[in-house]
Design a binder for these strands. Structure first.
Lengths: 285, 285
DNA sequence: AAGTGGTCTAGACCACAGA
DNA sequence: CTGTGGTCTAGACCACTTA
């Protein structure tokens, strides 16, 4: 390939501002928060994301044509399309045959790790994450656990119960089940280590895919005790199933949040959506 | 391009079954439920989706290499990659450089319209959807509504309140706000028309992008009366903001579900995710 | 009719996994 | 080392929108 230099990604191609928001076309600085992972389409995407965040195209404004972007960045149209697909999947821009792409809004600046890790999420919203280990046991896997973690019939699991805190205030109960090979690593971590995810990452364990189910649950005696709420209080529940890039299950977790501490957001589009409603099937644990 | 005939998409290329699930390699019928929209990569994706659902590769099994798929379907590798990207974004398969793709699970068979439309969702889970119109008014837009629907300062909105039912049982309260140009169409629909979405679609209004926020809310007097629950009952709330392919806002809705009637699922991956947690900011209405 | 995004091709090189 | 998916290119044609 042409191996364009990094500073090829700088400057700003102007699109078309929406009616009623002309005049704010500053920010030619080309500064970029996004990570340079050396992949061109990500750099282009990051640059466009920043431009959109700066309001260079306005909300409801039009992006430059793909051909124009390709020339501007000195890459092929295919690369531009890769970058735009990213923005599209993040709900930043629309696309429709025949017309220019339209800016929908500003990106929620959250990376994949922030989606999985309570710790990273807490930091990203400016709070101090904490964790209190309540219990960690090794026990034979239940039927559901064996199936979900794809384990042998007689396999054990590590079951961990933790209270997660924001700036010292308990907000979530985390019940996580790990297969033995992951659990052994978890067990060796210092007690009250805040982020298992980060530590596991350093052991070469990569969280690659996750399925989440969100519904409502009621606090049991443990929840009430640990969260300091009344027994039977309604909690927002997230069931999470995570695998590594190989498809090997890494964890199966049930998190219960105190109301008012968290909300979940999803974007979907006619092109690609990973969002669906389910008929409620009762407690899945 | 080579314009392959439709029946080029038939037969089945076998991958590699996971340990412990060999022997179920039937289904050479090539039957396909998927829609033939004439786009090759979608046809390939649908075919692979069916193959996966039939267990041809097994859960945890490996897909054939891209090159093999390309030859099998008689298309280029690029097209195969488009198809696989679809499956990936649906959480069906993983992908990692260096190794074959791994089957994660079976697709949730839901289309985009099922995600937006209560009616389609209800049908897809085998229940009879219903709607009872409680009120429909035209009134000046509030500040938030004006911003979210991108309206002029003095614009009106149509505000609709409906009770949604499953087989006659009330399960959800839907408070939707439409800009005038959409609301006028809605107002002309027959009272107790079940699916506004389907009707609007026939008027050429296309729902293309949606943002959802999910959290917990408590039943107010209206909710309690209409859902037949106690005042203050915890409800699962979905805030939804929908736009057409042009980026023009179509609706802004707050839906409140009785607990135990619905759950929301999300898939995300390290590659592309549209899912994020938010710091809770109180009632957004 | 001109412009734009959607789809597809054929080829290239690279980074990484696993034998 | 070989096979695999990840990235990128340069070109082509089509469907749709807008003027």
């Amino acid at each position: 390939m042409g191996a364009p230099t990094a500073d090829r990604v700088a400057g700003r191609l102007l699109g078309e501002a929406p009616a009623g928001s002309a005049g704010d076309r500053m920010n030619q600085d080309g500064s970029r928060r996004g990570t340079d992972d050396g992949v061109m389409y990500r750099r282009v995407a990051a640059d466009l994301r920043d431009a959109i965040a700066d309001g260079a195209y306005g909300s409801g404004g039009k992006l430059p044509a793909e051909a124009a972007l390709a020339e501007h960045y000195g890459v092929s149209r295919g690369t531009i399309r890769q970058a735009l697909a990213l923005l599209r999947s993040n709900g930043l821009v629309t696309s429709r045959r025949g017309t220019r792409r339209v800016v929908l809004g500003t990106a929620p600046v959250q990376s994949f790790s922030e989606l999985l890790s309570f710790t990273n999420w807490a930091r990203s919203v400016g709070e101090e994450p904490g964790a209190v280990l309540d219990s960690m046991v090794v026990r034979p896997a239940g039927d559901q656990e064996r199936e979900r973690l794809r384990l042998e019939p007689d396999a054990d699991v590590y079951a961990v119960l933790r209270v997660r805190t924001l700036s010292g205030r308990p907000v979530m109960i985390e019940r996580t089940v790990y297969p033995v090979w992951v659990g052994e690593l978890v067990a060796r971590l210092p007690v009250n280590e805040v982020s298992y995810t980060e530590q596991l990452l350093e052991h070469g364990i990569v969280f690659a895919d996750a399925d989440h189910t969100i519904d409502l649950a009621y606090a049991d005696a443990d929840d009430a005790r640990l969260l300091g709420c009344a027994d039977g209080t309604a909690l927002l529940r997230e069931l999470r199933h995570t695998t590594d890039p190989t498809g090997r299950p890494l964890e199966w977790s049930e998190d219960r949040y105190l109301p008012g501490t968290v909300a979940f957001t999803v974007h979907n589009s006619i092109a690609a959506s990973a969002f669906s409603r389910l008929r409620h099937a009762g407690p899945a644990r």
